[in-house]
């Protein structure tokens, strides 16, 4: 099993202290597996815990409870030092291309940083022969290597960020909203790059985004998160063609349709109200406060993940 799955997450829980005795329930009991060479998309609104989930998996945060198994190795409680060699297998692409690159470093130094950190090259100069092809691969040129990150446009920066994440040839890349800060005309460039690299190297992505159409396009499997819970997970076409969870339905109905004729026919299917505070999440199913189909039971018992047929997993009392 484990040699098939690059990543296995079991009942992952991450709580943050929020001053005093308050606890933010960022991620609560999330489980999924990611097969080698595949892409798993995680979608949800801001505050649903998808980013915390990613950052806990990559052990930027310590795990509160549960297990993270990377390529058959349990990394849940590893010390940072033990983890270091494993970091080569697991890299991350960040949301904000402005904040994620150090403005005081040249592009070459930024891309060479992982090489130096893992002792693959000793000197920055020696990194050139690895850095240049990478730069060209992401559509930039050698001349860009000596420029500083602050001189680049958002899309160019994001490609530098991708080059940094991919230069170690990782097996798993966690993409934390890699396109949401980019202009529409640039997003497709980045998505194509990621897809090409996957085809070439057979790596796996954990792709986090709130743009549902993009997630569907890149992912093999999609998980929908709401307030720290994973509410539905299945094959990506299935989730869009046949959403089961009321939240998934609402989310899909909220996507603006880039077609005025269809948009006019669209019925109002969106979800009313706001996402509750993760400090005091609702009892039972966390979505029941906004759910149009809520039953009394929903406010009391937390629904378990069930197979609704064909590997379509959903956590809802309706099924």
């Amino acid at each position: 099993m484990s040699d098939q799955n690059i990543l296995e997450v079991r009942d992952l829980t991450k709580h943050f202290k929020a001053g005093g005795k308050q606890v933010v329930h960022a991620v609560d009991g999330v489980s999924f597996t990611l097969a080698r060479g595949k892409t798993l998309g995680l979608v949800g609104e801001s505050g649903c815990g998808k980013s915390s989930c990613a950052r806990t998996i990559i052990r930027m945060y310590d795990v509160t409870a549960g297990q993270v198994i990377l390529d058959g190795t349990d990394i849940t409680n590893m010390k940072q030092k033990e983890l270091k060699p494993l970091r080569k297998k697991m890299q991350m692409i960040f949301q904000d291309p402005y904040a994620s690159l150090n403005a005081r470093m040249t592009v070459r130094d930024i891309i060479a940083e992982p090489l130096i950190a893992h002792g693959i090259v000793k000197k920055k100069e020696a990194a050139n022969e690895l850095v240049y092809p990478m730069l060209e691969w992401v559509g930039l040129t050698k001349e860009h290597a000596n420029r500083y990150a602050h001189e680049f446009s958002g899309g160019q920066r994001q490609r530098v960020g991708i080059a940094r994440a991919l230069i170690l040839q990782p097996e798993l890349v966690i993409c934390d909203e890699p396109i949401s800060a980019l202009d529409v005309s640039i997003q497709a460039q980045v998505i194509n790059l990621l897809k090409d690299f996957q085809e070439e190297k057979g790596l796996s992505y954990l792709f986090i985004a709130h743009d549902l159409s993009m997630v569907r396009y890149v992912s093999d499997e999609v998980g929908v998160m709401y307030l720290g819970h994973l509410v539905e997970i299945c094959e990506s076409n299935e989730i869009y063609d046949n959403p089961l969870h009321p939240y998934t339905k609402g989310l899909l109905g909220s996507i603006p349709i880039a077609n005025p004729k269809l948009a006019r026919q669209k019925e109002k299917s969106g979800i009313e109200g706001d996402i509750p505070s993760p400090i005091h999440p609702p009892q039972g199913c966390r979505f029941h406060t906004r759910c149009p189909f809520a039953k009394p039971e929903c406010g009391e018992v937390k629904p378990q993940m069930k197979d609704a047929g064909g590997g379509h997993m959903v956590a809802c009392h309706l099924y």
Binding site: I186, Q187, A188, Q189, L212, S213, Y217, S236, I257, A258
Partner: peptide
């Protein structure tokens, strides 16, 4: 350059090149 919600996954997106 933006995928439709019904976009065929095997079809590559057509980005606008450059910045």
């Amino acid at each position: 350059s933006i995928p439709d919600i019904k976009q065929d996954k095997s079809v590559r997106l057509m980005p606008i090149p450059g910045s």
